[in-house]
């Protein structure tokens, strides 16, 4: 007799635990509350990334097309996997002195692991993280970017 009671108890407890689980999913079925799905390409306009989001490395330019990069190469040294290559050139300044300046600041997005060492260690704050995250391209060569814009110059006052 006892075994029969135990058997029935087992069945009832089991069914009760199943019903408790069903209550959870049932609750969400009827009142989902917050829907977690984002309708991504449709909400592109309203999509705001976190301000520190590490999308890609960029070199901010001001409206006069000037940047802060002195071409010191610290970012290149700090990069763990060689995504950054700084090609510098010698230019003559207005007062006739010869000075080192960047020719091309090459950034290989395809190799970058977003460790932020370049941005953090830049002595003149020339690099920053952009918020762009749609990096897909059809040609791998397009992932090699030149960060300084053509014709850009070193900002006045940055050594």
């Amino acid at each position: 007799m006892k075994s029969i009671i135990n058997y029935l108890k087992e069945v009832i407890c089991g069914v009760w635990s199943l019903l408790k689980g069903m209550a959870v999913t049932g609750k969400y079925f009827f009142s989902p509350g917050q829907i977690v799905t984002q309708k991504y390409p449709n909400n592109r306009k309203s999509l705001v990334m976190m301000e520190r989001f590490k999308g890609e490395v960029i070199m901010p330019h001001n409206e006069k097309n000037e940047h802060k990069c002195t071409g010191c190469g610290i970012c290149e040294i700090n990069c763990p996997n060689g995504s950054i290559e700084v090609i510098s050139k010698m230019i003559t300044t207005d007062d006739g002195k010869k000075k080192k300046a960047i020719d091309k600041h090459i950034y290989r997005l395809g190799m970058c692991t977003f460790c932020a060492l370049c941005v953090k260690n830049c002595p003149s704050d020339a690099l920053a993280f952009g918020q762009e995250f749609e990096h897909a391209v059809f040609n791998r060569a397009l992932l090699i970017k030149v960060l300084n814009k053509p014709g850009s110059q070193l900002m006045k006052g940055v050594e």
């Binding site: 999913t25 049932g26 969400y28 079925f29 989902p32 509350g33 917050q34 829907i35 977690v36 799905t37 309708k39």
Partner: peptide, 13 residues
Amino acid sequence: KVCAFMQNRLGPN
């Protein structure tokens, strides 16, 4: 759709 609603999702849309 049903499983999506149970899982706080939208399902096919």
